[in-house]
Design a protein around this nucleic acid. Sequence first.
DNA 1: CGGTTTGTTCAGCTTGGGTTCAGGAATCCA
DNA 2: TGGATTCCTGAACCCAAGCTGAACAAACCG
Lengths: 227, 227
Amino acid sequence: MRLLIVEDDPRLRERLVGHFSAQGWVVDGAPDGREAQYLAEQYPCDIAIVDLGLPDISGIELIRRWREQNMTMPILILTARADWQDKVTGLEAGADDYVTKPFYLEEVEARLSVLLRRVEGRHSNKGVYGRLAIDFGTRQVTVDERPVDLTTYEFNTLAYLAHRQGAAVGRGELLDHLYDRDADRDSNVIEVFIGRLRKKLDPEGDIKPIETLRGVGYRFVLTRESA
Amino acid sequence: MRLLIVEDDPRLRERLVGHFSAQGWVVDGAPDGREAQYLAEQYPCDIAIVDLGLPDISGIELIRRWREQNMTMPILILTARADWQDKVTGLEAGADDYVTKPFYLEEVEARLSVLLRRVEGRHSNKGVYGRLAIDFGTRQVTVDERPVDLTTYEFNTLAYLAHRQGAAVGRGELLDHLYDRDADRDSNVIEVFIGRLRKKLDPEGDIKPIETLRGVGYRFVLTRESA
DNA sequence: CGGTTTGTTCAGCTTGGGTTCAGGAATCCA
DNA sequence: TGGATTCCTGAACCCAAGCTGAACAAACCG
């Protein structure tokens, strides 16, 4: 999952970037609106955190532009407690939720996961897809109730595919959302991870959670149980 | 275990800080609401003690904000005997228990340990995890009824892991909860203590109480007997 | 003070996981 | 059918995370 953080205060930005990188996210940090705009276009992210008080373009304006460009990722805004009224303008501009500064990191984390699961239509951190269950919070995966342990990247690829369940996901898209900017575009890592995932999740070959669309990419075919 | 003490009277604050540090807690002391708010965000604690009569923000307001931010640690409030009615407001704001001033330190200590064990679902100070038993009050540990003696820090790391049993606990989190604010983030103390613990608790290698999650941290895998 | 216990650092080693590569299988198209 | 393209997969590689024994330092205690 790729996360874009737009925050001018370097200390705070580093704190956020550090925290979420450690959590297994691919994180881009931008100090101002210009950089943020560039990054958002070049490396589409799954979710963004935007501080409203930026040096150049205002955060509000940035969000408005993104929405005009039909970018649909959820946006979480940060506002100083004093300027709490901005949150309304922010939400009107197209943001999805807000946190007032100073904040508690876990609070931001919790709100991100709510936003993320909302786009997938989940109501909890756990997604159940037939015999396969994925807990996006604790990063635990089970098949027929039996835990399967996946390495970091194995989980990340599975999570991204499940996040986009039903959609055709190209190798390029996967690379963008799982790796840093300087990823080697023509490596076959993705294929290797897909292979390992299939073997770990479905050793008997009777579930077939991941379909390959030749020349296009992959598709996570299981459908989530609306419970 | 990290404990946050919010108390404006310096004498009393020092008394509390001194007492609990000596008991093996990591203690932060805050003289006012502002500082308390900052500390709670930067260094998440396992439990907090809050005096209701603070110079700036009222203790009640502070607690309310914490709960709004979804901080879930237990909170013990201190009230002057004269203002005993405040305790109701405090509990409504989200505190978990109260002690009226003046008090005996032992009283506060006892209430803290009740609150702590409540979050773990224990009913006494002793937790039994299969062949391993931990007494959080007397700080004694036994394996197969046989006492194992652990040094202060060895016990602290074990206690914290057991406190968060089943959860993945990162090295960073451990450092935050076992060490003062100025801990060296890239030292391998944690690994050393984990190693020593494993050797002392499980010399035969047939219990394996602590699992390592590469790139993530550690997990205490034994489950407590609800008995 | 001297000795002992406890905490911290360091260096060398082991291991697991990510990456690459090469050969083989499957699929597509002329 | 045959060749080209895409994908799969087992094995090898390499680096960083984690482990460990030992040295060092600090605190504790008589």
